[in-house]
Structure formats: C-alpha cells, structure tokens
Simulated assay, not measured.
Amino acid sequence: MKKRRNLLLILAVILLALLPLWVVQPVEDVEPFAGADGKAMEAVSAISPDYEPWFSPLWEPPSAEIESLLFAFQAALGGGFIGYYLGASITRVRMRRAWQQGKPCT
C-alpha cells in the first residue's frame, strides 16, 4: 500500500513538472518561460524612463547558459541542504526516542 502511494506521488510530481511544457502554447516573439527580470526592467522603464539602478552587478556571466547553470547549481545546493537538514533532524528524533526507551539505535 505504501509503495503504491509513493509511486502515485512520484508520478504526480513528474506530471506536474512536465504538464506546463505540453499545455503552454508558444506565442510569436514571446518566450513562454522567460524570467521576470526582463519584464520588470520594461515595466520600470515604462513607469519612470529616467530611473537609474542603485548599483551594478559585480560580475555578469558570459552567457545565458552559464547563468542558468549557476542558478540550477544554487537550487541544487539549497535542496541538498534542506534535505540533509530534514534527514538529520528526523534521525536525531528517532535516535533520541530509541535511547529513551532503552532500545539500540539502528
């Protein structure tokens, strides 16, 4: 029963990840999965054409591919950190309960 539920959850996550790729119909001259940075810059320049940024980036990646790679790497590190923390916390609680009950920690 638990394996079946896990399999259904995994399939649901995969479906939720892939469904937008099939559902979104491309529009001419519009990138469907573009980031919000470019749109925000357009909106700010439309509202206030004489706006000047407060600061400039220290380093800009040489291409969009490298920028995407760095973003994915950052997301993977964050996900790994959160997964490690949750796993360590659960293990700590289980070991504490086992120790309090006088059972060997496995």
Rank of each mutant, 00 (worst) to 15 (best):
K39I: 04
G80K: 11
S45T: 14
A72K: 00
L11Q: 04
L21F: 05
G102T: 09
A46S: 14
E67C: 01
S63D: 15
W59F: 15
G35P: 01
W59D: 07
R96S: 13
F71I: 04
F55P: 00
F55A: 09
R5Y: 02
P57F: 07
A34F: 08
E60P: 02
E28Q: 15
A88Q: 10
C105P: 02
S45W: 08
F81K: 05
E60Q: 01
R97F: 04
N6Q: 07
R96W: 15
A75I: 07
F71K: 00
W22H: 05
S68M: 09
L18C: 08
W99P: 05
E42R: 07
R4Q: 07
W22M: 07
P104A: 02
S68A: 14
P49E: 05
P61Y: 06
A64M: 11
L16M: 14
L11C: 06
I10E: 05
S45A: 14
E67Y: 11
V27G: 01
R97L: 10
Q25K: 11
P32N: 11
A12T: 15
P53R: 08
L8W: 01
K103Y: 13
T106G: 10
S56E: 14
S48R: 12
I14W: 03
V30C: 03
L19R: 01
D50R: 02
V30H: 03
Y85R: 10
P57C: 09
A36F: 05
L77G: 03
P20A: 06
E52I: 06
M95W: 12
S68E: 15
M41K: 14
P61F: 05
A64F: 09
A72S: 02
N6A: 09
K2I: 13
P53K: 08
V23S: 10
L8E: 01
I66K: 10
Y85S: 12
R92Y: 03
M41D: 14
V44H: 09
K2H: 08
G87T: 13
K39R: 11
F55K: 12
G80Y: 08
S48D: 07
A72L: 01
D37G: 03
L86F: 12
R5E: 00
F81T: 11
G38E: 03
A98D: 15
T91A: 14
